[in-house]
Design a binder for these strands. Structure first.
Length: 494
RNA sequence: GUCCCCUUCGUCUAGAGGCCUAGGACUCCGGGUUUUCAUCCCGGCAACAGGGGUUCGAAACCCCUAGGGGACGCCA
């Protein structure tokens, strides 16, 4: 049987390095077995999915050199490859489950579910659906459906017993059914949930091996149940470890730059990023550390993947990128530099900012240095201001960072509006409020317009500079906790 | 809280019972080459989470404890 793997990102937000990591291993595995690698867009969350994000995922994967054989833009035999375009298929399968009594209609309100959950939490039980609608009579269900009552469809789960399944790297895993929720399969908006869609699609797309993050281990019982309800064979499961922040928690944009775009804009080479990612949880049998995608395909052995979560370490990534950069011949290096910085798109974003501020072309360089290069290292004294106390400076930086962390989109006017609003809530003039931000972002009191700078730098880099500024100011744990609390009292419109 | 997964230098890792006095790489610290810096070369610091077994022999196998992580959504 031909090996078929897939990467199934959801198009919400920036393309994540975690997605790139999973894509890499799925891609290498497929290529090694001369199989096929499929890109499927999981856009069943209609509120959060955007086409811009989908496009960014395509671009990021292409940049990395991970090409797919089938996907939304490369039609194959098993399409469409966007879940929002497969609605009919899911509906049919939900009906099958309903007919076989493996699923049931549920009319519970959000409020009721919240109450139940709260009660279970208080009683220190696993939180799960209490089965309220599991045994309604057929007549009642028909009546309520006919009345147009809002509803979802949930799957049935055995009340007792254990679910045992196999993970290629960990062996047999057993989870009691008592832990498994009667998962919603079809949402009130008519869209399937991830759990239903992933099973239906993986089956219909002939996926043979699922390489995905460890975070899914707990939902395998639901999936296995669905496979058995449909009487389909299970693909092989290979759960990879999760990439971590320095503090061991799951890699998150709050604590780390996570957007592939960030690494591209910072001047990392795709070869280096792939190579580094390939070293997360895996290593060459001969311990060779620098290798190309082709070398990885040749030497890859899925059973040598380790299961403990690796920390995504910027230092080693930088070193590795340096190795690649130095290995280039001068012409290629020059070409990379101009493609990176002097490409039309990046330059175009800068032109309107600098043209009116320059008298000579050479004035450009000091104006944009902090945008194209690293901002100068900061000192606590840099934040001295005639009107602002240290506490206020810290507050501004902290609260702005918290607000940035919540942003799903990174747009100039929106950022401006949010800062304006924040300044008001802090009872500060915008002019004063912006001062610490200028220092943190540009290293100067005066620079190119702040919000244009933020957009040019991108969310990851902007957040990173704010985090760095807070570190420079030596904010204590206690102070930070107090500020975190204060943030909760604020209202962000986003 | 419940369930699941994980545990070798600060970090990425090698290690499939004797080759382990635990190897490599990043970081850091020394030294050398170089007009400076970087590169490069050489050297150094630094780990088998703890406790019980199994075995002639355990970093490797089993059990317990501890620690870390994840999941517990009409998000994926």
């Amino acid at each position: 049987m031909k090996v078929r793997t897939r990467i199934a990102p959801s198009p919400t937000g920036d393309p994540h390095v975690g997605t790139a990591y999973m894509a890499l291993f799925n891609w290498v595995f497929a290529r090694q077995h001369e199989g096929e690698f499929i890109l499927r867009i999981e856009d069943t969350d209609q509120a959060r999915s955007t086409t811009a994000s989908e496009q960014a995922i395509f671009t990021a994967l292409q940049w990395l050199g991970l090409d797919w054989d089938e996907g939304p833009d490369v039609e194959g035999a098993k399409g469409p490859y966007r879940q929002s375009e497969r609605k009919e298929l899911y509906l049919q399968h939900v009906q099958t489950l309903l007919d076989k009594n493996h699923a049931f209609y549920c009319f519970c309100s959000k409020e009721r579910l919240d109450t139940v959950r709260a009660e279970q939490q208080a009683a220190k039980q696993t939180t799960r659906y209490d089965g309220h609608c599991a045994n309604l009579s057929a007549e009642e269900v028909q009546a309520r459906l006919a009345a147009g009552e809002e509803h979802v469809v949930r799957m049935r789960v055995p009340e007792t017993g254990d679910c045992t399944f196999r993970d290629r790297l960990r062996g047999e895993i057993t989870i009691p059914y008592s832990q498994i929720d009667m998962q919603v399969l079809l949402k009130a908006d008519g869209m399937p949930t991830y759990h239903l869609a992933v099973v239906v699609d993986d089956h219909h797309m002939d996926i043979t091996h699922i390489l995905r993050g460890e975070e899914w281990l707990n939902s395998v019982p639901k999936h296995q149940l669905l496979y058995s309800y449909f009487d389909w064979p299970m693909p092989e499961l290979i759960h990879l470890p999760l990439l971590r922040n320095t503090d061991q928690s799951k890699l998150s944009k709050r604590k780390n730059p996570t957007s592939v775009t960030y690494y591209r804009d910072q001047g990392f080479l795709p070869e280096a990023l792939c190579n580094y990612l390939g070293l997360m949880g895996w290593s060459m049998p001969n311990e060779q550390e620098l290798f190309s995608l082709q070398e990885m395909i040749n030497a890859f052995d899925v059973d040598r993947i380790s299961t403990s979560g690796p920390i995504f370490d910027q230092d080693k990534l930088k070193w590795m990128n340096g190795q690649y950069l130095r290995g280039l011949d001068a012409d290629t290096y020059a070409a990379k530099v101009s493609a990176w910085m002097f490409n039309e798109e990046r330059l175009a974003a800068l032109i309107p900012l600098v043209q009116q501020r320059a008298e000579r072309l050479s004035d450009l360089v000091p104006l944009i240095d902090y945008l194209v290069g690293a901002r100068r290292p900061l000192d606590p004294d840099d934040f001295e201001h005639k009107k602002l106390e240290r506490a206020q400076v810290v507050k501004v930086l902290h609260h702005t960072l918290a607000m940035f962390d919540r942003k799903r989109e990174w747009l100039r006017d929106d950022l401006y509006a949010s800062c304006n609003q924040l300044a008001e809530q802090c009872d500060m003039k915008l002019r004063d409020f912006l001062f610490p931000l200028f220092i943190a972002i540009s290293g100067r009191e005066v620079s190119l317009p702040l919000f244009d700078s933020l957009v040019f730098l991108g969310a990851d880099l902007s957040r990173g500079r704010l985090r760095d500024a807070l570190e420079v100011l030596n904010v204590s744990g206690k102070e930070r906790k107090r500020l975190d609390k204060a943030v909760e009292q604020l209202h962000f419109s986003d």
